[in-house]
Write a protein that binds this DNA or RNA. Structure first.
Length: 465
RNA sequence: GACCCCAUCGUCUAGUCGGCCCAGGACACCAGUCUUUCACAUUGGUAACAGGGGUUCAAAUCCCCUUGGGGUCGCCA
């Protein structure tokens, strides 16, 4: 099957989760059929569009691993093209000039609203045959002469057939007084010019679709196949917004998520393949067409994302994770240790994200005097006896010629048994001395990775507490 | 307000064009096991077809209504 698609963000903000998801679906669909996937920057609103957002969006696409074909197309550079199409419509009688002011149109809408009807332009310039005159060329817009009866049918990839009454639609503006195209006009022209076979976009565009279909028809152009993917909602089932926390892809990068995990999770929101949940990018490309698109909106669940991220982290080597964690360690203002890979191996199972992994490492990277004791934990284990145990262990450990895990293990348990103690009398205070808390990885492993000097320093500090 | 869309455990979902589903998986949650603690792993458990009408021998699956949620009504995109 021939497939040409696009992702068309407007650079008025960072790439957010909803946008990322539609980009992912387009990309997956296209790569599956080995078609072309284009990027189009919809920057016709020069006031709100910013270059830095374009850069940010492209960076997020790259981070997610979504590559595109050819150079991105910028709508702001194609006004001449759009106007050629508008002129064609004017010549064929499918469009006309309108001199109504925005205020007048707003009044029409209010009147319609008052009557309980759909607010729309009343078509008063339709038959006036206006032409731009030297007197006031700037004041006029061009409107589509839309059919006022009948229906417009959308055959949607995910929703099936959706029928709109043409009486619901009005004669939309195609060109503004300053010669700039409106959104629907520019989109249709570009989708025709770029040869789009499939238009996959967010559900919020369904009501634009009949308007666009009318433009295609006026132009005598073939329709692409439309596919409207459901919205992503917040955990509370309300529209996803800033108050739900991170909504931009870049935020998740900063949170230490793996891009393949985010892609995997976002794909699962609205797409399913039986009971399968874990997919690599390659598997997603392979299976995408065999899955099912779900028409109902879904809630974003950060906890499941974290779980899935952990699953993806399990497939990475410790060396990989170590490299990826470096920036997060630096963010914490901690030194990057020489045995980072070994630390990753010790701590990876308890950190669902790279950021968590770096944070989990904190106790290993600070100096004995900087180690933070959890007050409750300290209170629980601190006693004359426990100080004595730690003191005894310290002298035993200091005589060790080899500070490896098994020697330490032997020494530790040797001490416990020789003195008729129970491990839980000695273990907890030792753990607090080393970690500052009552939980954590294996004690002997910690000590061997900490090294003799650092271990003994921590035991000293504990006794002084 | 008008138009459009959606509706299975708290959440994401499975449910091969009605029967094998008194509904399966996953996240989260709870409990057991493992373990020097925590975590991991593992085993088990709680938990859903929004409501009401039809159609049918048979409905989570088809139709209608109600309710709830979402989207859109710009010379923004």
């Amino acid at each position: 099957m021939k497939v040409i698609t696009r992702f068309a963000p407007s650079p008025t903000g960072h790439l957010h989760l909803g946008g990322a998801r539609t980009a992912i679906f387009n990309w997956l669909f296209t790569r599956h059929y080995q078609g072309k996937f284009y990027l189009r920057i919809e920057d016709t609103d020069t006031l709100r569009s910013r270059q830095e957002y374009t850069d940010s969006i492209l960076a997020s696409m790259n981070w997610l691993g979504l590559d595109w074909d050819d150079e991105p197309v910028y709508q702001s550079q194609r006004f001449d093209l759009y106007n050629q199409y508008v002129d064609r419509l004017l010549e064929s009688g499918h469009a006309y000039w309108c001199s109504c002011s925005p205020e007048e149109v707003e009044k029409m809408r209010e009147e319609a609203r008052a009557k309980g009807e759909k607010p729309k332009y009343n078509g008063c310039c339709r038959e006036r045959g206006l032409r731009p005159s030297p007197g006031n060329p700037e004041k006029m817009v061009v409107r589509l002469r839309a059919p006022q009866t009948g229906v417009t049918v959308l055959n949607d990839m995910v929703k099936g057939e959706v029928v709109f009454n043409n009486s619901e639609l009005d004669d939309m503006v195609l060109r503004r007084p300053d010669g700039a195209p409106t959104y629907n006009m520019a989109v249709v022209v570009d989708d025709i010019e770029m040869g789009m076979t499939h238009v996959i976009r967010g559900d919020d565009h369904v009501s634009n679709t009949p308007k666009q279909i009318l433009i295609y028809q006026a132009l005598g152009a073939d329709l692409p196949v439309f596919g409207h993917v459901p919205m992503i909602l917040g955990p509370d089932k309300q529209k996803l917004s800033k108050r739900h926390g991170a909504t931009a892809v870049i935020d998740y990068e900063k949170e230490g998520l793996l891009p393949e995990a985010l892609v995997n999770y976002l794909t699962l929101l609205g797409w399913s393949h039986g009971n399968d949940e874990f997919f690599t990018l390659e598997q997603l490309v392979k299976e995408f067409a065999n899955g099912k698109l779900n028409p109902s909106p879904s809630a974003f669940d950060p906890e499941k994302l974290a779980w899935l991220n952990h699953e993806h982290m399990k497939t990475r080597t410790a060396q990989d994770l170590a490299d990826l964690t470096v920036p997060f360690i630096k963010d914490l203002g901690l030194p990057v240790p020489g045995n980072l890979t070994a630390l990753v191996e010790m701590l990876r199972e308890r950190a669902p994200t790279l950021k968590d992994l770096a944070a989990a490492m904190t106790f290993m990277l600070v100096n004995a005097d900087e180690l933070e004791y959890d007050p409750k934990a300290l209170e629980k284990v601190l006693s004359p006896e426990s100080r004595q145990y730690i003191s005894a262990l310290q002298s035993r450990f200091s005589e060790l010629s080899s500070f490896d895990e098994s020697s330490l293990h032997e020494e530790l348990h040797g001490y416990v048994e020789a003195n008729g103690l129970k491990f839980k009398q000695v273990g907890p205070p030792l753990r607090v001395a080393l970690v500052g808390a009552l939980t954590g990885p294996d004690l002997c492993r910690i000590m061997s990775l900490l090294g003799k000097e650092q271990t003994l320093a921590r035991l000293t500090r504990f006794q002084q507490s």
